[in-house]
Computed example of a mutant assay.
Amino acid sequence: MPAHYSLNQTEEAVSRRLGSIPIKREALAAVSNLYRAASTVRQHLENSALRGADLTWSAFVVLWVVWIWEEIETRHVAAEAGISKGTLTGIIKTLESRGLARRSQHPEDGRLALLRLTPEGTALMERLFPAFNDEEAFVVDALTGEESLRLADTLRRIVTHLEAHGEERREELRRQTPVPPRRGGRRRAD
């Protein structure tokens, strides 16, 4: 489902609202368009390639991570998929109930769990991924191959920058302004 307001309408409203507030407008444009693009792409893929397999984006990403690594600790799956361990638990239960994944105890550390795809899960990914990739190609169809590679490189630079310096920056900000406790009952990670 498309957003209620077009990208141009949203950008005009933001410009009106922010007026003369001194901000880094290039950063605002880059990050807000990155977020909007990611949300739009995710919705498109859920409503196209993933719909027939009855998979959410998060479930697909979990399947993808496990498919790539073959067997992986659940904590690493959550980190790679960008989801909480609690969210992963629900996804794993769904995937197990559908016969697509199997969880087992780590042979060297019983506190850890491993996740791997079942033969049915592997077969699903082998069937599904070409259709998923067709939709990835559709998503970037307005770009040339060179522009797609340049975009991928630019996004990779953002990710590696945050991987290298994000924690240091967050720690610096926490020292300047302590983070209040969460209200939702979850503990704040320090």
Rank of each mutant, 00 (worst) to 15 (best):
M1T: 06
A3Y: 02
S6Q: 02
L7A: 12
Q9C: 00
V14H: 08
L18G: 04
G19V: 01
G19M: 04
I21Y: 07
A27T: 11
L28I: 10
A38F: 04
A38Q: 12
S39W: 01
T40G: 11
Q43C: 10
L45G: 14
L45K: 13
A49R: 12
A49M: 07
L50A: 11
L50Y: 09
R51A: 14
D54C: 07
L55T: 09
W57D: 12
F60S: 09
V61M: 15
W64C: 11
W67C: 10
I68P: 00
W69Q: 14
E70T: 15
E70W: 08
I72V: 15
E73Y: 05
E73S: 10
E80R: 15
A81H: 07
G82I: 05
G82W: 01
S84W: 02
G86E: 11
T87D: 08
T87W: 01
L88E: 08
G90N: 13
K93Q: 10
E96A: 10
G99Q: 05
L100P: 01
A101T: 03
S104W: 01
L112S: 07
T118I: 02
P119V: 02
G121H: 01
A123R: 13
M125H: 03
M125F: 03
L128T: 07
F129C: 06
F129D: 02
A131W: 01
F132D: 02
E136V: 15
A137P: 00
A137I: 06
V139A: 14
V140A: 11
E146I: 08
L149M: 13
L149C: 05
L151V: 06
A152M: 07
L155E: 06
R156C: 04
R157T: 01
I158D: 02
E172H: 10
P178Q: 06
R182K: 09
G185V: 03
R188G: 09
R188F: 07
A189I: 02
